[in-house]
C-alpha cells in the first residue's frame, strides 16, 4: 500500500471534518478553527502530491505554494478573530448565524 495515499486520505478526512465543523458549529471561534482544519487538509493533499509525482526529486512548487497558503491563512485567521471579538463586544451574541428581526430594520451607515 502506498503510504502517500494515506496522507492524501488523511488530508481529505481533515477537510471533510473541517467542512462539517464549519457548517455545524455555532460558536464563531469553533468555525474559524474548523476553517483552519480545512486548509490544513488541503495543504496535506498538496504536499503529499509533491512527492507522489514518481520522480526521485521532490517537486518544490507545492511546498512554496503551501508556505504561501500558511501565511495567507494566518492573516485571514487574525482578521477573523478580531472581528469575532468585536462582534461579541457589540452584540453580546455568541451565535453568529442567528437571524434577528431588527437587523432588517436597524440603522445602517450610509
Amino acid at each position: 500500500m502506498n503510504t502517500l495515499l494515506f496522507y492524501d486520505f488523511s488530508g481529505l478526512a481533515l477537510l471533510a471534518i473541517g467542512l462539517h465543523g464549519l457548517i455545524r458549529s455555532s460558536h464563531p471561534l469553533r468555525k474559524i478553527l474548523a476553517a483552519n482544519l480545512m486548509t490544513s487538509g488541503v495543504f496535506l493533499i498538496m504536499i503529499s502530491g509533491a512527492r507522489g509525482t514518481g520522480q526521485t526529486m521532490i517537486d518544490p512548487v507545492p511546498h512554496a505554494m503551501v508556505l504561501t497558503g500558511i501565511v495567507v491563512s494566518v492573516s485571514t485567521t487574525a482578521v477573523a478573530l478580531v472581528l469575532v471579538c468585536l462582534v461579541q463586544e457589540t452584540t453580546n451574541r455568541a451565535l453568529l448565524w442567528q437571524k434577528r428581526k431588527r437587523e432588517k430594520w436597524g440603522r445602517t451607515d450610509g
Binding site: 503529499s48 509533491a50 521532490i58 511546498h63 508556505l67 478573530l81
Partner: peptide, 28 residues
C-alpha cells in the same frame, strides 16, 4: 513528507502563532 521548510513554517506560524491568536481571542 520531506518538506522541512513547510515544517518550520507550520510549527512557528501554523501551530505557534495561530494557536496564540486563538488563545488570546478566547481570553478576550
Amino acid at each position: 513528507l520531506q518538506a522541512p521548510d513547510v515544517a518550520l513554517a507550520e510549527a512557528a506560524i501554523g501551530a505557534g502563532l495561530t494557536g496564540a491568536l486563538f488563545l488570546s481571542a478566547l481570553r478576550r
